[in-house]
Design a protein around this nucleic acid. Structure first.
Lengths: 140, 140
DNA sequence: CATTAATTTTGGCCATATACCAATTTTATG
DNA sequence: CATAAAATTGGTATATGGCCAAAATTAATG
């Protein structure tokens, strides 16, 4: 039984979660808005949306942090990115190209597909965009 | 110099163009709406949008057809689909899975990336979703 | 050929996702 | 505590995609 489809979040929300994961801990609205290049008011609103999903906890005027559920989900998101970009890098795309390309379409690739790709590649430990952990495949 | 980025059309519009390409000739609004499972009024409006791009010609109450430009573009779209789904099929996805998966993200994959993947695979002639032609790579 | 049926289009309206600006509120700082 | 900085709220905007009801057009049938 699969509880995560990988298609739960919109592209921008995926960016938010990946950033929160990489940053870690309590992250300020301004950090997010400058990183994602949007107005602070935009990030505030998106954060409110995300808080509604239970993936993040928002402490007004203080910051946002991933919940436990969000932590797990974000780990999947980062893994998906790393696996897909590693795959593309096997087809003549440079690391930078693979990373940028993946960023555009990753949010539309299912966990089921990513799991198969990951298995097929032999659960690699390192991608072109960062380390790959395989908790969601049951590999620590 | 590359005139097509592959990112010009929204996902739904890509579906329209691929369908028009596969159907060929003058296609009725009803054909489209039943194929894409949308209300006829929705397809009428999307067709109007597409007509604005010069990719299709709309003859009111008669049907829609690809322009010459649209024909070339749609051929790229179908090729992109076939190349990406073929790629996925190399990672343990069945033809059906690869096809369905690709359908979700293909509109966010650039022509530049597709060209590299295509070259890297040796310009295959057959995919899991259909024949692949390589006119846009300069291979007839 | 005239009426009816089917198809298509229009107009109105709605939802989601993103985004900005201006104004306000809260927190931080000197 | 006064002011600056950060964050939020409220308003508004665009793009995409969608539906329904009504009107227009074309097709079909007696």
């Amino acid at each position: 039984m699969q509880e995560i489809t990988g298609l739960e979040l919109s592209p921008k929300k995926v960016e938010y979660l990946k950033f929160l994961f990489k940053k870690g801990g309590l992250v300020r609205t301004t950090d997010i808005s400058s990183q994602l290049q949007v107005d602070p008011s935009t990030s505030t609103k998106t954060i409110a949306d995300l808080a509604g999903t239970g993936l993040v906890e928002h402490i007004p005027y203080r910051g946002v942090r991933l919940t436990e559920k969000g932590q797990l989900y974000a780990e999947f998101l980062v893994n998906r990115h790393n696996i897909l970009s590693l795959m593309l890098s096997h087809y003549g795309l440079s690391s930078e190209e693979a990373c940028a390309e993946t960023a555009r379409f990753e949010s539309f690739v299912s966990k089921a597909a990513v799991d198969k790709i990951c298995s097929s590649m032999g659960h690699p430990q390192t991608g072109v965009c960062g380390k790959i952990r395989h908790i969601s495949c049951g590999i620590p």
